[in-house]
């Protein structure tokens, strides 16, 4: 992959899904003969045109039948193929859950499931097209690695990582076109290793997905008000990065987890589960979708209902610090 500032901007315009399927996958398939790409009738909306043109024999539309797609993917994978299967996160992680559990989690088939439009990017479509529980479901399955991309560049890194492993992976892609940029230059992506984006003060924001960019903006707003905080990108929800968390807990007085996901079972829960095993750790504030749905509207409108915008995150942190 040719990493230049211009390319990073182009990938951002394409969004996580466009970068993943339109940029990363065609290139990966050129290098790796055993890669296959399956979709449940979302090829065009996922930006797969280039892939289909370059690698027709590696592409398969299994139809609007998400459960069957997972079984087909598992069958194809048993002979050494590395199979990527994708549709919206709301369908792949929820409707196909049991097939994923049996074939990927238990049998260990080498299938990479890519859930696109996770969170509430399909905000106007309403709840059916939102995925705010997918990390909870995927994280509870043994043997699955669970990744959540902060921007388009990271989505590309995840595609490359997944293609080079032989175990099942869930990749959560969020946002639509024009994805906010977190990484303006190359960085070291290691699955299972959090990335520190900003380090200051004794408050640590741990964010994932689109909330990483939002948290970075919140940290700027806080800095303008004289409140310093660190921001970490937790791109791997499972396995969780215990050693970095140990350092974060030791160096901070307040932990704030931010995710475009239900606060039950997601990234914040993963952090809390580990934190609960340790003595003398700082308090944690959960920012995400409190248990419950929201009214449809623009993505920012939905975020505002849940307190997920940059200004709301900053205000919440100021309030929490005041009451600490």
């Amino acid at each position: 992959m040719n990493i230049t500032s211009a390319n990073i901007r182009t990938w951002a315009r394409l969004g996580q899904r466009g970068a993943f399927f339109g940029i990363a996958m065609p290139e990966i398939a050129s290098e790796k003969n055993n890669v296959k790409l399956l979709t449940a009738d979302l090829a065009l909306l996922s930006g797969m045109d280039r892939f289909i043109k370059a690698h027709p024999e590696k592409f398969l539309n299994t139809g609007i039948a998400e459960q069957n797609m997972i079984g087909i993917a598992a069958g194809l994978a048993m002979d050494g193929d590395c199979v990527f299967a994708t549709t919206y996160a709301s369908f792949i992680a929820v409707r196909s859950l049991e097939h994923i559990r049996q074939h990927l989690s238990h049998l260990g088939c080498n299938v990479k499931i890519v859930g696109s439009a996770a969170g509430v990017v399909a905000a106007k479509s309403g709840v059916s097209h939102w995925a705010t529980e997918d990390m909870a479901f995927m994280r509870a399955l043994p043997n699955l690695t669970v990744l959540s991309a902060a921007d388009s560049f990271e989505a590309i890194k995840m595609a490359e990582y997944a293609a080079n492993t032989d175990t099942p992976v869930y990749i959560r892609l969020s946002g639509g076109l024009n994805c906010p940029v977190v990484y303006t230059e190359d960085y070291d992506f290691k699955a299972g290793r959090m990335v520190c984006l900003r380090k200051a003060g004794r408050t640590a924001i741990i964010a994932t997905g689109l909330m990483v960019a939002e948290s970075m903006k919140a940290a700027e707003l806080l800095a303008e008000k004289g409140v310093e905080c660190s921001v970490y990108n937790m791109h791997t929800i499972k396995p969780i990065d215990r050693s970095t968390l140990d350092d974060i807990f030791a160096e901070n007085d307040l932990i704030v987890t931010v995710e475009e996901h239900n606060t039950i079972g997601g990234m914040g829960s993963a952090v809390a589960e580990y934190k609960a095993t340790l003595a003398n750790t700082p308090r944690q504030v959960f920012i995400g979708f409190p248990d419950g749905f929201a009214e449809a509207g623009s993505q920012r409108y939905v975020w505002e209902q849940k307190g997920l915008t940059d200004t709301q995150i900053a205000d919440r942190i100021i309030n929490e610090l005041r009451h600490s």
Partner: peptide, 23 residues
């Protein structure tokens, strides 16, 4: 494959059959 949960085997079998066809 595991068979406890009903309705899973034919999809998997179709995947195995497709792999054989293609190769």
């Amino acid at each position: 494959t595991s068979g406890g949960s009903l309705g899973l085997g034919l999809s998997y079998g179709a995947g195995l059959a497709l792999a054989a066809k293609r190769k």
